[in-house]
Amino acid sequence: MHRAAVPPRFGNKPIAGFLAIILFILVSAWCFDGSGFSIVQLLGSSEYLLRFLHEAFPPIDEHRLTFEQFDRYCLALIETFQMAFAGTLVGLLIGFILALFASRGLMFESRRSNLLQWSVKMLISLFRTVPDLVWAIIFVMVVGLGAFAGTLTIMVDTIGFCGRFFAEEMEDVDRSSAEALSASGARRFDTVFAAVVPAATPGLITTSLFAFEKAIRSSVVLGLVGAGGIGLELQSLMNWMAYDRAMVIIGMIFALVLVVEQLSSYFRKLVMKNE
């Protein structure tokens, strides 16, 4: 008996692998050079850091933080949370609908829908690639200063994030059960929702939770351009060099982000356990 030869260890193209590693090293060196990365400079500026810390502590002291101020910060923090939550929710919904069409060969036969799929993908990329601060400036211009502009920004951000990952999750689902349903005469639309979406749910939920975490983090900065939330307070304090009270706000933001991240990872584990 003559059997087939053992396949080579490093595939057919070992040279290509080595070249790829060398290329990676060269690119990294080039990028570190261009980014001005310097430990020396970082250590050299420690005096400014110390000044900031000196003026920031102790942050809570009756001469510095009044109860009214603290109250206002709390309201701003709550507003931040509300913006993030509402914006994420609407963004998830729209992102999901767009993802259905951005997902390869999902809603239509692949060859007919190529153009549509490509355009939706581009639209989602546009939402994602324009930075949130830019969206915030645009929305402040359109709907005026305040929380609504921030909410719209979060929404657009979420569409960009979830549109992409929802689409990928639905692409990764094994299509054989959907195929079985279409072999029994089910409409495409029904096979998507009866077979593909249920199989993708854990991924969809996980992505949604990540989107919310991301929204909480970015909603903090939106205030810097007047789009509502606690960022506005932070910015004016920094401008006034009131580092002590700024420190209070940073602490509050830290607490909010931490709580949301903990909750989110708790829910994620719950979803995974039911997997």
């Binding site: 054989s176 079985a180 072999a183 029994s184 005469g185 009866a194 249920p198 749910t201």
Partner: peptide, 18 residues
Amino acid sequence: TRCRVGVVFQRHNLVPRL
């Protein structure tokens, strides 16, 4: 036409999470 044909696949092809 397809809905008149009941198909059982070699790999069952059920929706796993339902």
